[in-house]
């Protein structure tokens, strides 16, 4: 019997299994995946599976946290109190989602400090979409509709991901995110049906966010280096291109109802495929942003680092207080 402490603090980590027949463990793992069972934290798992999950969950968590910034940029300028409340609640949810995801990552034996450190030093990524600036109020709507829409398309299948804690975190996230996309759509609808200036603001935002949203699904299948293994492990359930197509098919009629156009002259219904065809994606832009040359890469990371550094004395104070007082100041109530 062992405690729930992260792997690194435990006596019997994966190493303990080595003598006991790696093959038997691998077989049990493969059988569980094949039977669509969930892998749970203390189960044996291949090192590469663990590493893939840590990378993906961390990147996902970082995206939620960095993703607070472009929207928080408009909290203090929201044009009505109703919109302000919605936006604050949404940005708060993103912090919450980051926390759920860090918590899922911790079940794999990596501490949050370690993950944040990797984010701050640029060794782990976050979604490139958040390296674009929010220039007008309509961008808040475009992020809700398109960016959250793309995220939800990606995330819904993750609720069935083979790793239990990740799947459970995603169930919670998806449940809470359902309002995010709607508020964005509603915001854009109000602008589109509003004054001429408001309509133009909405169209401009959609023009700027459409292509970056399509890039959120990642490189095309034939160029995606992690996809095949992730699909085999049932971490991923659909390919990048499949999800991208699904997203385009959903968005086209929604754009029509909004009274806004999508900035792609090649976008048209293909009767034969039963899908919308769309124009080529500029992957050079994607790779530039990924390399750190997007409009806001530096700004986002700087702000994150600054918040963390400026908060250090607060975290230290609370830790020092806890050490001084032990549990004697606790409420002393027992669970019942």
């Amino acid at each position: 019997m062992t405690t729930l402490l992260p792997e690194k603090d435990r006596g019997g980590g994966p190493g303990a299994h080595e003598e006991a027949g790696q093959e038997a463990y691998q077989e049990a793992f493969d059988a569980a995946i094949a039977a669509d069972e969930r892998i749970e934290p203390r189960d044996w798992m291949p090192d590469a599976y663990r590493a893939t999950l840590v990378r993906q969950i961390a990147q996902h968590a970082h995206s939620e946290i960095i993703g607070m910034q472009p929207e928080a940029n408009w909290i203090t300028r929201a044009p009505s109190l109703r919109r302000k409340a919605i936006l604050m609640a949404k940005v708060q949810d993103e912090a919450g989602h980051g926390l759920y995801l860090y918590s899922a990552a911790e079940t794999l034996g990596v501490g949050r400090d370690e993950l944040l450190d990797k984010l701050h030093s640029g060794r782990q990524k976050y979604s490139s979409i958040f390296n674009y600036p929010t220039l007008t109020w309509a961008d808040v709507g475009a992020i809700g509709w398109l960016v959250d829409g793309a995220a939800i398309t990606n995330q819904v299948p993750l609720c069935r991901c083979s790793y239990g804690p990740y799947a459970r975190a995603m169930v919670r996230v998806c449940k809470e995110e359902s309002f995010h996309q709607r508020q964005g759509y509603e915001l854009l609808l109000a602008l589109s049906r509003g004054t001429e200036a408001q309509h133009a603001m909405a169209q401009d935002a959609v023009d700027r966010w459409w292509w970056p949203s399509l890039m959120m699904f990642g490189p095309p299948d034939d160029a995606s280096k992690h996809s095949a293994q992730s699909m085999a492990w049932k971490i991923k359930r659909h390919s990048n291109d499949e999800l991208r197509q699904r997203f385009v098919d959903i968005c086209v009629p929604q754009a029509e109802s909004l009274g806004l156009t999508l900035p792609d002259p090649l976008l048209r219904w293909n009767e034969e495929r039963g899908h919308y065809d769309f124009g080529p994606i500029d992957w050079s832009e994607f790779h530039e942003v990924l390399r750190g040359n997007g409009p806001c890469n530096e700004q986002r990371l700087d702000r994150r680092r600054r918040a963390h550094e400026q908060g250090a004395w607060v975290r230290e104070a609370a830790a020092a207080y806890a050490r001084k007082h032990g549990e004697q100041d606790g409420d002393g109530r027992t669970a019942a």
Binding site: L99, A104, R172, A318, D329
Partner: peptide
């Protein structure tokens, strides 16, 4: 009571409050 997830806190009192804010909002 059902397991909802985890969080970080310096002590039990703060953990309870963080849990309230995070898991029951």
């Amino acid at each position: 009571h059902t397991h909802a997830g985890s969080l970080h806190a310096p002590d039990a009192e703060m953990a309870l409050r963080n849990a309230r804010d995070l898991y029951t909002r």
